[in-house]
Amino acid sequence: MQIQLENLVPVPLRDKIMQRSSDIWNRQVTFTPGGFTKIKAPSGTGKTTLVHYLYHIRTDYTGQVLVNGKTWDSYSKDAIAGMRQEQVSVIFQDLRVFEQLTALENIELKRVMNAAPYCTAEKVKEMAARLNVTHVLNQSGKTLSYGERQRIAIIRALVQPFQWLIMDEPFSHLDEENAQRAALLIAEECKARNAGFILTDLDNDNRFAYDTHYNL
C-alpha cells in the first residue's frame, strides 16, 4: 500500500501554512512502504489534522491524499473498512477507547473484527504483559488512566495485519520506561509484518531507527 500526498493543504490552516515552509504541506510526498517515518511538528501546525487526513476521517483539505494511486474518495465505504482491517492501523492522540467495554474487550473488538483474527488471544495477553497493563485488562474503559488507555490503544492497533501504522503522539501519556517498552513492541510488530509507520510527535526522539524525518 502506497501513500502519497499531492499539494495537501488543510483549508482551516491555509494562511498560516503559506507563511512558512513545511516538508509535508503543499508538497509532493511519497511515503516509502516499510519505512519508519517521523514527522516532527510543533503544536498548532496541523499534526493531528495530518493523521486524520492520512486515515481519511477528515477531508477538509485541498490537494490530494493518494492511496495506491487513487484518492480516498474513490474507494467505497466497505473497501475503506477492508483497508482499515487489513492494511492500515492507527493510534489516535485522543486514544478513542470504548468506555462501555473493558480494556480487554476494546482490544478483542479489533482482533475479532476480522473474520480470521491476525493474532491469538494469548498474543494479546503477552503484549499486555510487556506493556504492564495485565492488571487493568478487566477494568472498564471508563476507569482507565490516560497512560493505561494509551497502552491499550497501542495493543489494539497491533492486533491486526497492516502495511502502515499511523501514530499520533503515541507515547504522550507514558513515562520513559513504558514508552521504551511500547516503542520496542511497535518496532517488533512492524518488522514482523514488513510494515512501515508514520509517527507524528512534538519533539525529536531516538526511540526508533527512523528512515525518514520530516518537519511539518
Binding site: 476521517i57 473498512a81 477492508g82 482499515r84 478513542r96 470504548f98 473484527m113 489494539r156
Partner: peptide, 15 residues
C-alpha cells in the same frame, strides 16, 4: 458516536 468510532476502527458498514 459509537458507530462512528466503530467505522473509524475499521468496522464495515456491511458488518
Amino acid at each position: 458516536k459509537e458507530i462512528q468510532l466503530l467505522v473509524t476502527l475499521g468496522t464495515a458498514p456491511r458488518q
